[in-house]
Design a protein around this nucleic acid. Structure first.
Length: 314
DNA sequence: ACTCGCACCTGAGGGC
DNA sequence: TGCCCTCAGGTGCGAG
């Protein structure tokens, strides 16, 4: 569900509520949330390992690259007695501690919500972090395509990122984003440009909604082959993607239903600004032609057959 | 070395 | 009402 604008809206709220707080304890209601969708068999000790690793840690900031978000962790000053086994053994160790972060990926249906203890627990709540601010951060995820876990921070494209995000390219809203590098990679791609836009190792943050929107706004057909497309057109697609995601972020992202909300449970408003996504069979806002819906790379793909001319080589 | 297709889940909505 | 099918903001892995 969430793409860059939605994840960034959530990150901002999480950072506001959690930066500088200490995690006093945690719960894992469904251990599957600790694994990826392809690593669902969770060792029972993983739950204890997670609880031990996060308890007593101080949250420095909520950070993000593409759709990957994480809480960077600092010294657990003031951590409660009895929950500091990880740090206690190293208390006198002069060697610097490895930098850690709590990775949170929202998958298709994940939400992070801030609550006061005692507020009603949603039935899809998979994990909870208790904070010393007398608030708690709840990870709610209907489909469990998301995951959470403590990871070392490693260097990737000029930043410290969680180990499992090392392969993720910079997104268009971060300083490390280099459109020339992306175009340089794109011109080697023989796959459909829509699929290339969804390749998070090439450019991150773009998902199914904004890929369709960016291609429509740039007037490029989703099945165009990047290697056979003018560089100027590729640049236009990247600019459109950046613009549409910035515009969406400015209004809190895109919400079709209650599955995407920010930390306070509020929806975003960009759904009313979508020009093609979800509009199959309706008239194109530019030329009135019926918006087509096809499948590209297994994903529903919406485009205008007139405004986005089919490539001649196909 | 690439590219593709599917599996991983739960739930909503449509057709019969 | 109920059953069965399709579809959904993502990602990782194995097969070809």
């Amino acid at each position: 569900m969430p793409e860059l604008p939605e994840v960034e809206s959530v990150r901002r709220g999480v950072d506001e509520w959690t930066a500088g707080t200490i995690i006093t304890g945690a719960e894992v209601a469904d251990p599957r949330i600790l694994g990826t969708t392809s690593q669902r068999r969770i060792d029972p000790s993983a739950v204890d390992g997670f609880l031990t690793a996060v308890s007593g840690q101080r949250i420095v900031h909520a950070e993000r690259r593409g759709k990957f978000m994480w809480l960077s962790l600092g010294e657990g000053v003031g951590s409660p007695a009895g929950q500091t086994s990880v740090n206690a053994g190293r208390a006198g160790d002069p060697a610097p501690q490895p930098e850690l972060g709590i990775l949170v990926h929202l998958g298709m249906s994940g939400q992070l919500r801030i609550h006061s203890p005692g507020e009603e627990i949603h039935r899809h709540t998979r994990a909870v972090l208790h904070l010393d601010s007398d608030r708690e951060l709840r990870f709610v995820d209907q489909r469990i395509f998301g995951h959470i876990g403590v990871q070392p921070l490693v260097h990737g494209y000029g930043r410290l990122v969680p180990a499992s995000a090392i392969h993720i390219a910079p997104d268009p809203l971060e300083p490390a984003f280099d459109p020339e590098r992306v175009v340089g990679e794109l011109v080697k791609k023989r796959t459909a440009i829509k699929a290339a836009l969804l390749d998070q190792t090439l450019i991150s943050g773009i998902g199914n909604i904004y890929a369709d929107e960016a291609l429509f706004r740039a007037g490029v057909h989703p099945l165009a082959t990047p290697a056979r497309t003018r560089k100027s057109r590729l640049v236009a697609v990247l600019e459109s993607a950046t613009k549409v995601m910035s515009d969406a972020l400015a209004v809190g992202g895109t919400s079709f239903d209650a599955l995407y909300v920010n930390v306070n449970g509020e929806s975003g408003y960009f759904d009313r600004a979508l020009l093609v996504y979800g509009r199959g069979g309706q008239e194109c806002v530019r030329c009135g032609t019926e918006i087509a819906k096809i499948t590209v790379g297994g994903r529903g793909t919406h485009f205008c057959p007139v405004c986005q001319k089919p490539p001649r080589y196909r």
